[in-house]
Design a protein around this nucleic acid. Structure first.
Lengths: 135, 135
DNA sequence: TCGTCATAGGACCGCGGGTGTCCGATATCA
DNA sequence: TGATATCGGACACCCGCGGTCCTATGACGA
């Protein structure tokens, strides 16, 4: 029950972009160096963030990445789910049909509540707030 | 970010034991059948629960398993951590030294809070309450 | 004392997914 | 047209999850 490296990398990368001056673009190499993230791996992750409309990309010479929207509008949950898919604490919360016991099972509501409390925190934390904090 | 099958199996097994009459012992085969858990795999899981003092085992003919303490005193978190180890949402919460950025990192407190909310729910749910609910 | 039946525990194993790497294609600017 | 950036697919490593199997050990009943 742990966030993947990918998820952690994604969050830190978005944080990096949120800390850059408005409209400035950054390269993969730049972020990779700053946060010690393998460059080609990071490239993949950024592509997922582009697909999720969290990050914008610019190709060609002078290309790079910037945020696709206001940092205030991006939550940690957004970023995490963009690279890891939706959060499901237990498979019975993902596919009811995968669990023979979902009806009348006293345990699944507990998983559901736990998951809700968890995602609540991640949903409330936005990158404007995170970026504001000292390096 | 998902509980393992093992964790899920462990919770359901303890629930099974909590629902049995006081002092009654149950076999692996019994629980395995009821909850469709592979028998030899379940045996391993029960051994972990024994080591964690959540479950008692009795060897030999007429042997089996029963709870080692009051069901009220056993939380879902206890059971989960007995088989999966302690919960760490991110490695930076596990080994500060593994993260170059732990000092002055604005993200790790968010992980910590999310983890706390999550474990809070699991800690509060005990097996007396769970067992009481209808099958 | 011996056979039966339960857990104890170690060895093993397939496979899927996480974590990357590499390379060619494509787009853009000077 | 060349330099330099992202795009995207193919591929590889490896560890841990999920599960099996086999032998040892202990306990009860006859």
């Amino acid at each position: 029950m742990q966030v993947t490296r990918q998820g952690d990398y994604a969050v830190r990368s978005v944080l990096y972009l949120a800390r850059q001056p408005f409209k400035k673009v950054s390269f993969v190499a730049e972020i990779s160096e700053e946060y010690l993230i393998p460059q080609s791996f990071l490239a993949k992750i950024l592509q997922k963030l582009v697909k999720a409309k969290i990050v914008r990309s610019y190709r060609g010479v002078k290309g790079g990445f910037s945020l696709a929207k206001q940092s205030r509008e991006i939550s940690m949950l957004d970023v995490l789910e963009a690279v890891e898919g939706r959060v499901h604490l237990n498979i019975c919360l993902k596919d009811k049909k995968n669990c023979e016991f979902s009806k009348n099972c006293p345990v699944s509501p507990v998983w559901a509540t736990a998951q809700m409390r968890l995602t609540e925190v991640l949903k409330k934390s936005n990158f404007e707030d995170l970026a504001r904090q000292k390096t």
